Every structure is written in C-alpha cells, then in structure tokens.
Computed example of a mutant assay.
Amino acid sequence: MLEVKRIYLSFGGIMAIAGVSFTVNKGEIFSIIGPNGAGKTSVLNTISGIYFPNRGSIKFEGEDITRISVHKRSRLGLVRTFQNLELFKGMTVLDNLMLSRHIYIKYGLFSSIFYFGKALNEEVRHREVVEKVIDYLNLNHVRKKYVYELSYGLQKRVELARALCLEPKLLLLDEPMAGMNMEETEDMARYILDINEELNTTIILIEHDMNVVMDISHRIMALDFGEKVCEGTPSEVINNERVLSAYLGEEKWL
C-alpha cells in the first residue's frame, strides 16, 4: 500500500531523516519506534504531506504522492492524528466530527445559505457517516459536549474519531496513547485493533509504550537519529542489539 524510498529531510544543518526506506502492506499495523528525537514524527509528516522530503519518493497504492498537497492525500484515503491534540475545543464533539467531512462537501454557497435540496441531502449523508463513528467509538454520551469539557483520554478518542470520519485507507497514528492512564491505554489499543481488523484499515503507529507496540503490531521499524536501525517482526526487533543500544545507551547495554 505504501512505499517509502530513501527519503531525506533536513532543517538547516540538522538531518531529521537520513535515507529511510520501508514498505507498508495492506491490512497490517506497522509501528515506528525510537527514542525522542529519532525522527518518527518527521517520517509521518512527510507521508502526510506536511513536509516534502529533500530527496527520495513516497508512493501510495502505486501513485507517487511525494509532492502532492495534504488535502489531496486525504482524498486518496491517507489520514492522520496528531501527537498534540488539534481539536476545536470550543465546539461540540459532533461539530468537530462533522467538520472533518468538509473535503467531501460539493454544494456551493447559495445552497448552503438556503439549506435545501443538494445541501440538505449531502448533510444527511455526511451525518450518517459521523453517527456510525460515534457509535463505533462509544462517544454517544459526549456527542453534544464541548471538547474542552472532556477528559484528556476522551479528547484523544475524539481525535481518532475525527480521523475515522474521513474513511481512511491508511491511518497514521502519532502517539495515540500518550498521557493516558492504564485503562485508557487498554481501551485505545482495543479500538486500534478493531479498526484494523473489522474496518480493514491499514495503520502506521508511533508509540512509546513498548508493551502495546509489541502486542498489536505486525511489523516494526526502529529509528535512531533519523536513520533506520532495523525492521521486522516484534520478536526480531525487541532482540536487536542496535535497538537495545539506542534505547538503553551503549555503555549501559554493554
């Protein structure tokens, strides 16, 4: 589904990504791990189109998307969440989710003013998609609450719901369990598994909780200082000497 080939990304004199290559197969959970500053989010940003790589190529379902804009990638089915919540906290959960459907809206200004015919029919169709996501992620009890009223864990779930409302083929999750307690982490892991298995959504996951990563991932890639350290199954990666060195430090590991 996704082919990333020798991408480089630098900010001034700092090399954030140094020649990283990998592929993601349809239907799998592919995790990216590494210490803070390893380049994980930078890789996600180049895939989603926030940054264009200095060199290298990115193909999604065989189409070169290296230089196309973010909204066009969303239309192709490539959707992401953010490490830091990017919700409209002064709006309700329902309004946040409906807003995510804007890239599919086709009616014009005149129709929206008088709200009849095409505009009304489209609104109903988009609302049906949103309602299914609300039910799927058990958000019915907070649907009309303002986002700022919710706990951090619920806000994270709303962020995931907003991404699902875009009906992704490839879902990029940037630390979806960060800052959560154990119960919230377990719930989020279960939702991610359900999205992968029941909705047949391919997932790229960045996460620091190694227990979760090892439990739910099909394959894992480890990064350190912008370079690819290794790639393989969870058992292969967790026993890799370079991965242990990157996480624990060379001296401590020895």
Rank of each mutant, 00 (worst) to 15 (best):
M1F: 06
E3F: 09
L9W: 02
G12Q: 03
A16N: 04
S21E: 05
T23H: 14
V24D: 08
E28M: 09
S31H: 00
I32A: 01
K40I: 04
S42F: 05
V43G: 11
V43K: 09
T46W: 05
T46K: 04
I47K: 04
S48C: 13
G49N: 07
G56T: 05
S57Q: 12
E61D: 15
E61W: 11
E63W: 10
R67W: 10
I68E: 04
R73E: 06
R73G: 11
R75D: 12
G77M: 06
G77L: 08
L78I: 14
T81V: 08
L85E: 11
F88H: 00
G90K: 06
V93I: 01
V93D: 08
D95F: 02
L97R: 02
R101E: 13
R101M: 12
K106E: 15
K106I: 11
Y107S: 13
Y107A: 03
F110N: 01
F110H: 01
I113A: 08
F116R: 14
I134G: 03
I134W: 07
D135P: 01
Y136P: 02
Y136H: 04
Y136A: 00
N138Y: 03
H141A: 11
V142H: 03
Y146I: 03
S151F: 02
K156D: 13
L160G: 01
E167I: 10
L173Q: 01
E175V: 06
A178T: 11
M180Q: 06
E183M: 09
E184P: 05
A189V: 13
I192K: 06
I192V: 11
N196C: 12
N196S: 13
E197S: 15
E198P: 04
E198N: 15
L199T: 07
L199K: 14
N200Y: 11
I206A: 05
H208L: 12
M210W: 07
N211C: 09
V212Y: 08
V212S: 10
D224E: 14
G226R: 03
K228E: 04
C230D: 07
P234L: 00
N240L: 01
N240K: 07
N240C: 01
L244P: 04
A246S: 03
A246C: 00
Y247W: 00
E250M: 13
E250Q: 14
L254R: 15
